[in-house]
Design a protein around this nucleic acid. Structure first.
Lengths: 210, 210
DNA sequence: TTGGACATGTAACGGGTTACATGATTGA
DNA sequence: TCAATCATGTAACCCGTTACATGTCCAA
């Protein structure tokens, strides 16, 4: 179980529809703690949770439109509590940019500009996310619990740290290349040679602008 | 493509076996940027990459043991470069602890102790990870490029920030409960009532120790 | 009248994990 | 000799996404 638990959790805030749950998670930036929720997983899971008695439908109508509102049953509240009590799994992070950075010197050493572009793009995205979170957390109409507010701070702090780091990285890349921090077996030198040999590149190397 | 690219990237550091690739990614903490690599995905992908001509086998023997060492072909180096040039996908983070925190007040408001335990466990894990990364990044025999070193710093900084935040959170939870940061519609009050009604709980509420 | 937000759903597919199966070598 | 480490591989499965299908209501 896992998307199931997110659904139970969001329904613990208030009774809601599948569509509403998705909105809720998106706007609150709760997606930060969970990749994202797609309708393709929400609706089938909601159905399943209802069949299993964790949630029940309260209305099938809201302002004329067809809208199935679900709420937690006693069993659902208990399951949510049990899940919360279990120790959380370690965080899973998948950051392609940081991965690319660690392959950059062996994979594309002559093109630092593109990496700078990647970093600048990422920095803009992070700045935008911070703005969104800050605005949302002071908008005056969304409910934010004491702990929820602190979670929000968590993401904001991490985003700020990332933004700072992207900047450091960019400044660093705009400067002259420096030797590896640690390389007792000449691995980077060897990698460069293997690449040049495989690609049939000239030894001329990285085009330095005068 | 994606695990494929991680494999190409690791092979750009040096020719390696499936087993060796997994080790490499684990010890260098590169797993931080990628969930984890299982043999169940490594070996089939390696086979596929070889069939498609991105990598080739160089030896099938290493010190008497059967060991298939792969290295990049020209096509593999080109594909790695092409991938690196493409803008990276936004980071994906899945943090069950932070998710649980945001459901805690509606899902399990009376039990703050368990949440403190979760935070303490997580803090210990993060501290251990920092120790591992710091030790590794100064062990004197692993190759660490300039950029790779900065990536390492990135993870270490983020882990430290997390550790700090876990501590703040714990101190906060050990203090008295405070009202929601923002709650114009009395959502948290309503949620508490719904839960109590569903579970048939007494209004006595959270057991305060005198 | 048309585009956008609201709203629900399914089927095929993809990507990776878990669990299992196997076996050599080395050091305590 | 026994556990740990080195080493490769497969098959079943899980989980979730993408893409598609469908329809309403409202405001410009």
């Amino acid at each position: 179980m896992s998307v199931e638990h997110i659904l139970l959790g969001v329904l613990s805030w208030m009774p809601n529809s599948g569509y509403g749950i998705k909105k809720e998670v998106e706007i609150s930036g709760r997606e930060l703690g969970w990749g994202r929720l797609s309708y393709g997983s929400i609706y089938p899971k909601l159905k399943k949770l209802e069949e299993e008695g964790f949630i029940r439908t309260v209305t099938a109508e809201r302002e004329g439109r067809m809208t199935k509102i679900y709420e937690l049953t006693a069993k659902g509240w208990r399951e949510l509590g049990d899940w919360l009590r279990r120790p959380p799994a370690p965080p899973e992070i998948r950051d392609e940019l940081v991965m690319k950075i660690s392959f950059w010197e062996t994979g594309l050493p002559e093109d630092r500009e593109t990496l700078i572009e990647h970093l600048e793009l990422r920095r803009r995205e992070a700045e935008e996310m911070v703005r969104h979170l800050e605005e949302w957390s002071r908008n005056g109409y969304s409910a934010i619990s004491e702990l929820g507010g602190l979670s929000m701070d968590y993401w904001i702090d991490h985003l700020r740290l990332s933004i700072e780091w992207y900047g450091r990285m960019i400044r660093y890349l705009e400067g002259p290349p420096t030797p590896p921090r640690q390389d007792p077996h000449g691995l980077y030198e060897k990698a460069r040679r293997r690449r040049q040999a495989a690609l049939g590149l000239e030894e001329s190397d990285s085009p330095e602008h005068p």
